[in-house]
Amino acid sequence: MWMIRFLLFALIIFLIYSLIKYLLNPKRKLELAHEQKRFFFLDNKNNVRKNFLITYKGVLFEGEKYLGTTENAFEVVNVFIWPHRIASLNGLVREDFEFIERKVHESYPNASIDWKSPIHEFMKKNNHSKSPFRDE
């Protein structure tokens, strides 16, 4: 009888542990934020070789980090970001991409951020259209 009680107690502890682990899982938080079209930045800063994921307004972005040297240390100096699905970019504006850049700079202040196509062309084109020397 005491063996059944012990196994039942162990099962309850295991279920509670599994539930807590599930609720605190960062991938689940990313998926939830993606469904709710909120911002979420999933990154393992200790592992430079592992890409980070960002969700913003229902669009999932992936970023690749490159290690380099700064004046004082080895740090992430380049970041390339691209969307998982280009069709999901519909409705995003320049300010959205600038917001994402600011958030990445909070984690990697010495990094230059480059967007992959087609965002790269959009950001470049949008920079030229805001020129004060443009004829209207």
Score class of each variant (00 low, 15 high):
residue 63 G to F: 04
residue 110 N to T: 04
residue 116 K to C: 02
residue 48 V to R: 04
residue 62 E to Y: 13
residue 17 Y to V: 11
residue 77 V to Q: 07
residue 104 V to P: 07
residue 69 T to F: 14
residue 105 H to R: 10
residue 49 R to Q: 15
residue 98 E to N: 10
residue 112 S to Y: 00
residue 66 Y to T: 14
residue 100 I to F: 00
residue 32 L to P: 00
residue 46 N to I: 03
residue 106 E to M: 10
residue 77 V to E: 07
residue 122 F to D: 11
residue 41 F to A: 06
residue 128 H to K: 14
residue 83 P to G: 00
residue 18 S to M: 04
residue 53 L to N: 12
residue 52 F to T: 02
residue 90 N to C: 00
residue 19 L to E: 07
residue 18 S to V: 00
residue 73 A to R: 13
residue 67 L to D: 08
residue 65 K to P: 01
residue 104 V to L: 06
residue 131 S to M: 11
residue 14 F to T: 03
residue 31 E to D: 10
residue 61 F to Q: 12
residue 57 K to F: 05
residue 111 A to G: 09
residue 80 F to P: 01
residue 118 P to D: 14
residue 106 E to D: 12
residue 116 K to R: 14
residue 104 V to K: 06
residue 86 I to D: 05
residue 63 G to R: 03
residue 19 L to H: 03
residue 88 S to Q: 09
residue 136 E to H: 06
residue 51 N to A: 12
residue 26 P to N: 05
residue 116 K to T: 01
residue 17 Y to H: 05
residue 81 I to T: 00
residue 64 E to N: 15
residue 41 F to N: 04
residue 45 K to W: 09
residue 108 Y to S: 02
residue 26 P to M: 04
residue 91 G to V: 10
residue 95 E to V: 01
residue 55 T to R: 07
residue 19 L to I: 05
residue 56 Y to S: 08
residue 101 E to Q: 14
residue 114 D to V: 05
residue 94 R to F: 11
residue 44 N to P: 01
residue 53 L to C: 07
residue 11 L to P: 00
residue 20 I to P: 00
residue 44 N to Y: 08
residue 48 V to Y: 14
residue 46 N to F: 10
residue 45 K to M: 15
residue 114 D to L: 06
residue 95 E to R: 06
residue 34 H to M: 05
residue 124 K to R: 14
residue 107 S to V: 15
residue 27 K to Q: 06
residue 99 F to M: 10
residue 15 L to I: 07
residue 35 E to H: 09
residue 133 F to T: 07
residue 58 G to A: 06
residue 117 S to Q: 11
residue 30 L to D: 02
residue 45 K to D: 15
residue 127 N to V: 10
residue 122 F to I: 09
residue 22 Y to R: 05
residue 103 K to W: 01
residue 99 F to R: 08
residue 25 N to A: 03
residue 75 E to S: 15
residue 37 K to T: 04
residue 42 L to W: 02
residue 109 P to Q: 10
residue 59 V to Y: 03
residue 131 S to T: 13
residue 16 I to T: 11
residue 69 T to R: 15
residue 59 V to T: 14
residue 43 D to A: 15
residue 125 K to Y: 07
residue 76 V to F: 06
residue 128 H to G: 06
residue 17 Y to I: 08
residue 23 L to F: 11
